[in-house]
Amino acid sequence: MSDLTVAPHERGVLRLFTLDMRPEEAKFLREPGAADQVLGVDGLDPSHIDIFPVSDLEELGLYGYMTEGCGVSAGQLDRNALASVDGWVMVLRSAAFNGHPATLNPDPRLRLIGLFTEEATNWTGGIIETESAKPFSAPQTVTAGDTPRRVGSAILALVALVVIGGILWLIL
C-alpha cells in the first residue's frame, strides 16, 4: 500500500501536499468538488480538507500547525523540511474519504510531502483498587426521611377515579 492509497475506514491519517499553482487556482480548490478533480477521486468531504498559504501561519509555521493544530507527534516531523515549504499547501484528512477506500491520482502540480498520523487517545487504564471503587461500596442504610410517601399518590389516584366516574355518569 502506498501513501496515495486510502484503506477502507482509514482514520487519523493526514496527507500533506504542496500546491505548485497560482494563488487563484489554489483558492479555487476550496470549492466543493475542486479538490476531487486535482486528487483524481470522487466524493471527498471538503470540511476535512485544509488549503492555505503557509504564510498565513505566521510564527506558528507549518511544523506548529501539524503538531499543535493537527495532533501529529513531533517525532514524525522534520522541522527543517517543513520550514522550507512555502506557497500553498493542502492537508487532506482521512475523514474526507468518508470511510471509503481510494487511490489518489494527483495532478502533477500537487506534490506529496508526507503521510502523518494523528496521536490517538490512549483509553487503556489500570485497575482501580481503592475500596470506594468497588461496586456497592457505598453505605446501604435507609433513613426515615428516605422512605417513600404514598399518601400523595393515593390521593391523586382517588381524584382520578372520581373524575373518570363523573365523566362516565354524565355520558350515561
Rank of each mutant, 00 (worst) to 15 (best):
G64Y: 12
V162E: 10
I164R: 06
L77T: 07
G145M: 05
V151D: 07
A74E: 15
K27T: 05
D56Y: 14
G69L: 12
P135M: 01
I51H: 10
L161T: 08
S73A: 10
D36P: 13
P108Y: 02
G145Q: 15
V151L: 15
F52C: 00
W88M: 04
P53Y: 07
P8C: 03
A138F: 15
A35K: 04
M66E: 03
T117M: 09
V38P: 09
E24Y: 00
L44S: 05
P139I: 04
L14C: 05
G87V: 05
R11H: 14
T121N: 11
S153W: 15
S47E: 13
L92C: 05
P23Y: 00
M90I: 03
A157I: 07
N122F: 03
Q140W: 00
W123D: 14
A26P: 10
M1S: 14
V85A: 07
C70N: 08
T117H: 13
W88C: 12
S132G: 10
N122Y: 00
T147R: 14
I113Y: 06
G165C: 08
S55Q: 07
S2V: 01
L60D: 05
I51A: 02
D42L: 01
S73D: 11
A35P: 07
R93N: 12
V41P: 08
A83Y: 06
E24N: 00
P148A: 12
V85D: 15
F97A: 02
A154N: 09
A81G: 10
N98P: 04
D146R: 11
G75L: 03
A160E: 05
G61I: 01
L115T: 06
C70A: 06
L82A: 00
L110A: 05
S137E: 06
P139V: 02
L19G: 01
S132F: 07
G114L: 06
T124H: 12
I171R: 15
L156G: 12
G64H: 02
R111P: 02
S94M: 05
R15A: 04
L158W: 05
R111A: 15
D146E: 15
R11Q: 15
S132Y: 04
L60H: 04
T121Q: 13
G40V: 02
T67N: 07
A138N: 08
Y63R: 01
A138L: 11
A133I: 02
V38S: 11
E58S: 07
L112S: 08
G166F: 08
A160L: 10
G114Q: 08
I155L: 15
K27G: 03
Q37G: 00
V151P: 02
D20H: 03
P106V: 09
A35C: 08
G33P: 04
G99Y: 07
L77W: 13
E118Q: 14
H100A: 15
L110Q: 03
E59Q: 14
V54W: 09
G145F: 08
R11T: 09
R109A: 14
S73Y: 01
V54A: 13
R30S: 08
V41A: 06
L19N: 06
G145W: 09
A26F: 04
D78Y: 06
H100L: 14
L168I: 10
I127A: 13
L77R: 10
P148E: 08
